[in-house]
Design a protein around this nucleic acid. Structure first.
Length: 453
RNA sequence: UCCUGAGUAGCUCAGCGGUAGAGCGGGUGGCUGUUAACCACUAGGUCGUAGGUUCGAACCCUACCUCAGGAGCCA
């Protein structure tokens, strides 16, 4: 493998006769020479190549427009001008792939809305190359966090027949033709199947065998949600821990968010500087504040109290027993706490059947971690491990034990207290980059009406 | 799905009843090292689509489409 710009730019001393391959970002021409800014994607910065007008290959310059791919041989020298430490004094320029005048990216800024229409070219821009380098680093940090703590990575199914009740609308998976007289039992799997909305239920079975496990993979929601925070296909991180209660669960969630924020601060400094300058000027401050102190914890009941006493007039009334609205969550995270906050012990009527019922009979051991600007980034709970209580909850939710017999079996054979949560990977990326639209942290976003590429 | 706003050159926008504009990007020429280079010239448009009002519509009205912001649902 030839050296990438990431290594070349970190060079300690000049080098002669090196080869650089990449894409032209800008060209600045004057009479005696031309300056080509070349990037290869390996890092944010590019390398300035100086092509003297007397070089034989300088004749190619008229065809080297923004977006063209080039191979340049030359000497890495200290740049005599301000703006960069190193530059490449070219001895030979080769045009690998022309980009004609219709190339849509120019050196001036583009709006994210326009760039979404050219998702195949936007990773060549500053913003998106930074976003997707960070996405890769963060995915690695997610695995590192769990692997360092002895968690096992479990690949839960993407096609599933269980609908993880309460997690939203599902996409149907079928080989039956539309309008076909065939019945579901004649379908490929012999029963209705869907794209998974969560690996949690299957994850629980592995936690009740391997101890601590996590999943990290794509999940799907067929909700007609049109917001900057929802996508039909997104990646979720779902740890599940045996012998774990709600408070240990909350501690784990906090530890993970801090670990990932720290990874952003220490491993992606160039990208972070860019985001802080061009995307969100408060980003670095906010990330540093996240690490400073323990996340506040407020019970749902106390949260309702403080909302009622806030003196704020909310569009939606604050009522114990109803879900917290976005405006309520924003007030708590952004005005009351001014930082990440975990709300726990929600009314059981608004939560799914598998959450553990508390002794008060009214609430379940659920928790949501809210962060300023984004809202819910993590949702989790301690799971109901008592056979009779779980059966009763399933009855209340109108679920048949037959459909979940394997899930109920976990409570029948060696049941243990266990807990877990789901962290939306894209929401985490929005938090650490400051990018405000989920469509801009996914390589090819799937939202209602949009599945191009 | 609901509410609000916006669609004018490849991109970002100005024009808001009376001959379609600028910057960037492209082309040509100039400039002794530029940094979103600079200077001059130049090409580039069914003003989202379809109706309507008017002597006259990019501009006013209606519908639809698309996008954005907010809400619901949630991660």
């Amino acid at each position: 493998m030839p050296e990438t710009l990431r290594h070349i730019l970190a060079s300690e001393s000049p080098q002669s006769a090196i080869t650089v391959r990449g894409w032209v970002r800008t060209k600045r021409e004057s009479k005696s020479c031309a300056f080509l800014e070349v990037t290869d994607g390996s890092c944010f910065r590019g390398l300035q190549a100086v092509v003297d007008a007397t070089l034989p290959s300088a004749a190619l310059l008229s065809k080297v427009l923004t977006g063209a791919s080039v191979e340049i041989v030359g000497d890495l020298i200290e740049s005599p001008a301000a703006g960069q430490k190193w530059e490449l004094q070219a001895t030979e320029l080769r045009l690998l792939g022309e980009a004609d005048a219709s190339y849509p990216l120019q050196k001036k800024g583009h709006t994210p809305e326009f760039l979404r229409t050219i998702a195949h070219l936007r990773p060549r821009t500053n913003l998106f190359s930074n976003v997707f380098r960070v996405r890769s680093r963060m995915a690695y940090a997610v695995h590192r966090f769990f692997q360092e703590r002895g968690f096992f990575y479990v690949h839960t199914p993407i096609i599933t027949s269980s609908d993880c009740e309460g997690a939203g609308e599902l996409f149907r998976v079928t080989t039956l033709k539309q309008g076909s007289p065939e019945k579901p039992e004649e379908d490929f799997f012999g029963q209705p199947t869907y794209l998974t909305v969560s690996g949690q239920l299957q994850g629980e079975t592995f936690a009740c065998a391997l101890g601590n496990i996590y999943t990290f993979g794509p999940t799907f929601r067929a909700e007609n949600s049109n917001t900057a925070r929802h996508a039909a296909e997104f990646w979720m991180i779902e740890p599940e821990m045996a012998f774990c209660d709600l408070f240990a669960d909350m501690t784990m969630a906090e530890e993970q968010v801090k670990y990932l924020v720290d990874a952003m601060l220490t491993e992606c400094p160039e990208e972070l500087e860019f985001f802080n300058k061009f995307v969100d000027k408060e980003l670095v401050n906010r990330l540093k504040q996240t690490l400073e102190k323990p996340f506040e914890r407020i019970s749902y009941t106390d949260a309702v109290d403080l909302l009622l006493k806030s003196g704020k007039s909310f569009e939606h009334p604050v009522v114990w027993g109803e879900g917290l609205q976005t405006e309520h969550e924003r007030y708590i995270a952004e005005e009351h706490v001014k930082g990440p906050v975990t709300i726990y012990n929600y009314p059981k009527s608004i939560k799914p059947f598998y959450m553990r019922q508390n002794d008060d009979g009214k609430t379940v051991a659920a928790m949501d971690l809210l962060v300023p600007g984004i809202g819910e980034i993590i949702g989790g709970s301690q799971r109901e491990e008592r056979l009779d209580v779980l059966r009763a909850a399933m009855g209340h939710h109108g679920l048949s034990e037959e459909d979940y017999s394997w899930y109920v079996d976990l409570r029948r054979y060696g049941s243990v207290p266990h807990a877990g949560y789901g962290l939306g990977f894209e929401r985490l990326l929005m938090f650490v980059t400051g990018v405000s639209n989920i469509r801009d942290v996914i390589p090819f976003a799937r939202t209602p009406g949009h599945a191009a590429y």
